[in-house]
Design a protein around this nucleic acid. Structure first.
Lengths: 189, 189, 189, 189
DNA sequence: AATGAATGAGAGTTCATTCAT
DNA sequence: TATGAATGAACTCTCATTCAT
């Protein structure tokens, strides 16, 4: 048929869209193949099985996400600036990519992603982790376990974006800034 | 064989446990029946189908939950007191009933519960809703859409409890109070 | 509950109605019990199993039918008169009892009744059988195997009544007489 | 396993045989698959569900049947000739294909086929319909509703073939001609 | 005698995965 | 390398039948 330059990408994209739209159990491999414009068997040339396809999709999305979030991040700026910068970026990324958000949400809430999630957020190597640590040292941020601080930051984020995507709420630039401010209020000393 | 006094309850309990453990799609009706110590057919004497079984389980849990949460709630106390009271109760309930938390989480994140959740939290009739409204009127709470305030309150809650249940975090009374305080910081003016 | 004077009869009647309405496979025993106003278990006090219930119903209907058909039948009248008399009675009975017709039709066309049907129609003892034999002897009726003559008589009957019951055709007294006449034309020499 | 060149045909054939032998409700899909030498899932590659499989089988049989019946039919021949021609062809077809007869019988007597049957036989477009109309116009055929005439023709046919297939009757060429003659006697003026 | 809650065999259907082409 | 026809395990649900009350 048409010259598919990269079937692997087509499969991943189809998977993203379909799972965002219909959930894991609503998207059979045959449907993914159809949407991707490839044969069912082809999926198994690029991925061991359906699970691995989904894990791989997650990894790629994660990398893309991270690249975006830390873009323009400057270690030497004040803590609050950096906090706002990171939050803004995350919000913007997820609002701009609702499909990815829907997918990630499902991924983390399913047996697939339970393990993955924490390994990501809590890894001490993360700049965000380091930022909070520094904030605490400077006496700006509440002296709480990082996991709890993360909960105070990412918890609202997930909720609010979900509501935005479902139309319950209209997030604009102004509201976003106020939201980030409120999040800072929650963690600041 | 064994004289089960209340098979309906046994089925609901088995469903709760299994779905909390393994998710919706990981728990076939045959497994529920086995765990409940009844025949497969018996499930269908009490519930029209699997969907209805799950809805019913949700309804019953919801009622139990609500009864607990609004227990000892007094309209005439100050806004902050009432806020703390409700938050405390919700946290305590969910921490004491991790299976139910796990189930509700799945329920709300699945096609089953999307509609239900907001209808519940955002409905103007809810005391929590009224409380925030009053807080705003008194100039104590930020002037934001209620949906956003809910996100700032329940977002951290869901995250933190999940982390507690998965062992990532050890929540004690002290930490809980500090968490509720931080949540208040987020929404207070 | 209400004083059921004859549960057995109630069960048979419910079975007749339901099977006529919905077919064998559309009528579970539970439905029969409900319609009959008895418990499911009660059916099994009167009948060994569902098959036997249906066979019994057939037998009773058959007896009732036969009693009606041979009513007023006089051996000494001319062959044609007797033929018309019997046909008229059968037609009238089946038209007056569409439920029974529906049931019998299903019964004969199912594994249940294949054997039964012939045992009935071809038994040499039947007056109808004797009538045709006499008609042949008198040179009034075609010299064909009785089975074939029966086909020429009962075949149209079944078809026409089915069409009448389904509303495709409106049978009145006049049309009925013409139909019986046509049937006689088919078998007469 | 075995290289089946046409599984679809194998499935249809197995369905025909089994339903003729055992009725609709006596033939589970698993049995069809086994008899056809395919996996259960394969049935669903070719047919949406069991109903559609059966409808399709009917359509194909019907087409084959019709092709045979109207073979050699010449509009310009006399009415009686044409009547005999069609009857002969139908009889021959059904006698030569007892499985198809058994299947069609079941199909028409089940919820599947009620609508189909009349739509077919009575539709004004059918040559048989036109033939009877012409016969009436020429004063050869009794002035009765077509439905009734159809009953007089097809009623005996169904009965007699059933008896032949069940061994109650041995139809040969001679008997067949006499039967067609008798049918004509029934409808002729 | 009458009941109906309980049962599990068996129904129709789906879908991740394989493999001959 | 790419395909999609073929598969059967596993799913949800039905219903004739049993048996303790």
């Amino acid at each position: 048929m048409s010259r598919q330059p990269d079937k692997r990408t087509a499969i991943l994209l189809a998977t993203l869209k379909l799972i965002a739209e219909r959930g894991f159990h609503g998207t059979p491999t045959s449907m993914i193949a159809e949407r991707a414009g490839v044969g069912v068997g082809t999926i198994y040339r690029y991925f061991k099985d359906k699970d691995q396809l989904i894990h791989t999709l997650y990894e790629e999305l994660e990398a893309k996400n991270k690249a975006f979030v830390y873009q323009g991040y400057e270690e030497e700026r004040p803590v609050l600036d950096r906090f706002q910068h990171l939050c803004r970026n995350i919000y913007r990324y997820l609002l701009a990519n609702p499909l990815e958000f829907r997918f990630l949400e499902q991924y983390f809430d399913s047996p697939y992603g339970v393990a993955k999630m924490r390994q990501k957020l809590d890894s001490a190597g993360e700049p965000f982790h380091a930022l909070l640590k520094e904030g605490k040292r400077q006496g700006l941020v509440k002296d709480m376990p990082p996991t709890l601080l993360f909960g105070l930051i990412f918890g609202p984020m997930i909720n609010v974006i979900k509501d935005h995507d479902s139309g319950l709420l209209k997030l604009d630039e102004v509201l976003l800034e106020r939201l980030i401010e409120a999040t800072w209020d929650a963690i600041k000393k």
